[in-house]
Design a protein around this nucleic acid. Structure first.
Lengths: 341, 341
DNA sequence: ATATAACTGAGGTGCGCACCTCAATGCAAG
DNA sequence: CTTGCATTGAGGTGCGCACCTCAGTTATAT
C-alpha cells in the first residue's frame, strides 16, 4: 500500500469511515473499544494524516493577531517588518495576520483593547507588553474565552498556561556578563549599565543575570547602578557625563534595553569613553552598523524573524489542538560579533 | 469576496478556468495577451493560491535524500538524529526523507553512489561530502538529470547552480579568532590549532578566517601551524605534547574540526594546558558538557536542526519550481558560551 | 484560399479528508 | 418488555485545485 488513507484505516480497524473520523477528530460517541481498534490500526498500517487534505476539507482561515507597542525605535520597526513578511508568506497557507499597535505601557488601555478582541474574529493573539497585574488578568480572560495566547518577547511573569516565545532574559544578561568579563581580562574596573527604564521586567532580569556572573566570576569588576535614559537623548548625555565624572575607571558599558541608539550615541560621543567595551541587546540597523564600525563590541540578540514564525507556528498548532514541537520553537540567545553578523 | 478562488480569478480575468490553470502552472499554449490578463487579475483581486488544495490535487509525495558520511563521532550522530526528527515530522506533509550513509571521503565510491540515484526515486538530494573534482562532476551530473541538489554543510567549492545550506567557514573561523583574541587580552602568546585533517576544505577556510583576524587585529598573538590528529587519540596526545615542549607560551587552542572530543580530551589531560582558552566547533553532547564544566570556553556552532529543515524547505521549493525564501534559509554562525547554551 | 499550427473554452474526474444526516443496532434502566 | 440513550454504519457533499480530453476558434504559413 503506497500511503494508507482513512479508508484503508477503517478497513484495517474493522470499523466504518465515520468511526475513524470520530476517533481522529475527537468527536463524541465513540466506545473505548472502537477507539482502541482504530489506534492499533494506525500503528499497524502506519497511517499518517494528509495535512493538505485536512486543511482543504476544514477550509478554515486562521486569523492571528500581534499586539505590539505603538512607540519604539528601530527594534520595533524590525519586528513590524518581520511580522509583515510572515503575513505575506503565510497567505497561501490560509493564515491571515494582523497587527495592532497600541500603547502597551498603559495597562488600562491595553486591558481594554484585549477585552475588545472577539473570539469570532481571531484564533490566536501574540502579545508583547510589559508586566502588570491588570494586563495579566486581561490575558487570562482572553484565554478563558478560547483565544490562544502567546506571550511574545515580553516580560510577563509567565502565565503558566500560556505559551511563551522569547529568550530567558536572566540568561541573556548572564551572557552579556560573560562576554564583558572575558573581554576585559584581569584588570579591575567598573561597568556602566544603561537602560531606557528599569521598570521593564526584561531589563530587571537581564540586570540580575548580568550581576550574577560579574559577582561570581569576575569579582575585580564592579557593575554600577543602572542609569535610566527614559528615551531622552540629552538626559542620556547628562547622566552619563555625571557617572564619568565620578568614576575614572569605567572599562565597559552594558545597554539593557532593546533600543540602544540613544545610549550608544551618548557613549561614543563622550571623549572619556572611547576605549570602553560596549555590549548591547538586539540587532537593528543601528547596532549592526555600530558593531561594524567598532563603536560597540558585541550584540546579544534574539532573531525577530524566528520569533515571529515561531509564534505563528505555536498559535497554528494550538488552533488545531495540536502541541507545538517544543525543540523547534526555542529561541536562541545569539552572540553577534563583527565577524558573524 | 472572502478569498478568491481560481474560478473567481478566471471570471475577473475574462478567461476560462483552463486558461487560468495554464497560466498558473506555466503550461504551454497560452498567448501573451491571455497570460497578461490573468496576471493583472491576480493583482487586482488579490488572488493567492491555496497551497493545501494544490498539494492535495497534485497528490505528489516528495522524496528527499540526505547523503551523509558513514564514519563520524557525535556530530554525525547529532545530524542523523535531526534528520530523523524532520523525517518524522514531515510525513504528514507528504514528504519522505531517507538517509544514505556512505564513505563520503572516497570520491570514487561517492560518485558511483550518486550516479546510481534514479530520477524516479528521488526529487532532491542533500549531500555532505568533502571536495573533489570527481565528486563535483558527479553532483553536476545529478543536477543535469533533474534532481535538485543541496550542498549540505560541506565544503564543496560551491557549484554555483546548486543551493547551499551551511555557514561561511571563513567567517566562522574569523569569529573564533575574534573570540580568542578578545578573551586573551593584551599579553602576547601562542595559539595551538588542531584539526582532524587539513585536507577538508572546511578546515582550510576556517583556518584562513582565523588567521586573517589574528594577524590583523591581534598581532601580539601567533597562531601555530595546524596539527592533524587523523582521529587518533594517542597521536593527538603525542603531537600536542610535542608542541607544548617547544612552546612555553601557549595561551589558547582552537579546534577546527566538527568532532572535538579527541583533541579536547588530549588538551584537558595535559598538565601544562589547564589554563588555556579553548574554542571548538559544533555543539555535541561532549562539547556542551565541556563548556559547562569549563574545559572549553566557547563553541562556534551551526544548528543542525535548522540546517536540516532548511535543506528540506529548499528541496521542496525547488521541486515545486519555486524559489526558496533566501532570508529565512540563512544559517547563523552561533557563539555559545556557558550562559547561553 | 487552404492547410496547419497555435490557442481557448467547456466540462469532467479525483486528490484525502471533514462534516453532515439518517437509519440501524446495542444496551441498560425501569 | 418498553423506553431512552449511546454507539455505529452508510452515504453524501464540498473544500480548491491539477490534470485530462475534445471540440471549437483564431492566427500563420504556403
Amino acid at each position: 500500500m503506497i500511503r494508507p488513507t482513512a479508508k484503508d484505516l477503517a478497513e484495517a480497524a474493522g470499523v466504518s469511515l465515520a468511526t475513524v473520523d470520530r476517533v481522529l477528530n475527537d468527536r463524541p460517541n465513540v466506545s473505548a473499544r472502537a477507539s482502541l481498534k482504530v489506534q492499533e490500526a494506525i500503528e499497524k498500517i502506519g497511517f499518517v494524516r494528509n495535512l493538505a487534505a485536512v486543511a482543504l476539507a476544514r477550509n478554515k482561515i486562521y486569523r492571528f493577531r500581534f499586539v505590539l507597542p505603538s512607540k519604539g525605535d528601530q527594534y520595533l520597526q524590525e519586528l513590524l517588518q518581520r511580522v509583515g513578511e510572515a503575513s505575506h508568506t503565510l497567505k497561501s497557507d490560509l493564515t491571515e495576520i494582523t497587527v495592532d499597535q497600541i500603547a502597551t505601557d498603559d495597562p488600562y488601555q491595553l486591558s481594554r483593547h484585549l477585552a475588545a478582541i472577539e473570539t469570532e474574529e481571531v484564533d490566536g493573539v501574540a502579545v508583547m507588553a510589559p508586566e502588570s497585574p491588570q494586563v495579566r488578568d486581561a490575558l487570562s480572560r482572553l484565554m478563558t474565552r478560547g483565544i490562544h495566547l502567546v506571550q511574545f518577547l515580553s516580560g510577563q511573569e509567565k502565565l503558566k498556561t500560556a505559551d511563551f516565545v522569547g529568550v530567558d532574559n536572566f540568561a541573556a544578561g548572564a551572557t552579556a556578563g560573560r562576554i564583558i568579563g572575558r573581554f576585559l581580562g584581569n584588570e579591575p574596573g567598573k561597568i556602566m549599565i544603561v537602560a531606557e527604564t528599569m521598570v521593564a521586567r526584561d531589563s530587571i532580569e537581564r540586570r540580575r543575570g548580568f550581576d550574577s556572573i560579574i559577582n561570581e566570576q569576575f569579582p575585580h569588576l564592579r557593575a554600577l547602578p543602572s542609569l535610566e535614559t527614559y528615551g531622552d537623548q540629552s538626559r542620556a548625555a547628562a547622566i552619563i557625563q555625571n557617572v564619568v565624572e565620578r568614576h575614572h575607571d569605567i572599562r565597559a558599558a552594558y545597554v539593557l534595553s532593546p533600543e540602544s541608539r540613544i545610549p550608544v550615541s551618548a557613549i561614543s560621543q563622550h571623549a572619556d569613553l572611547q576605549k570602553v567595551t560596549v555590549v548591547v541587546h538586539e540587532r537593528t540597523p543601528f547596532s549592526e552598523e555600530a558593531l561594524r564600525t567598532g563603536r560597540i563590541d558585541a550584540i546579544i540578540a534574539q532573531d525577530p524573524g524566528h520569533a515571529v514564525r515561531s509564534a505563528v507556528r505555536i498559535m497554528r498548532a494550538r488552533a488545531d489542538l495540536r502541541d507545538p514541537i517544543a525543540a523547534q520553537e526555542k529561541i536562541r540567545i545569539e552572540v553577534l560579533l563583527k565577524e558573524n553578523l
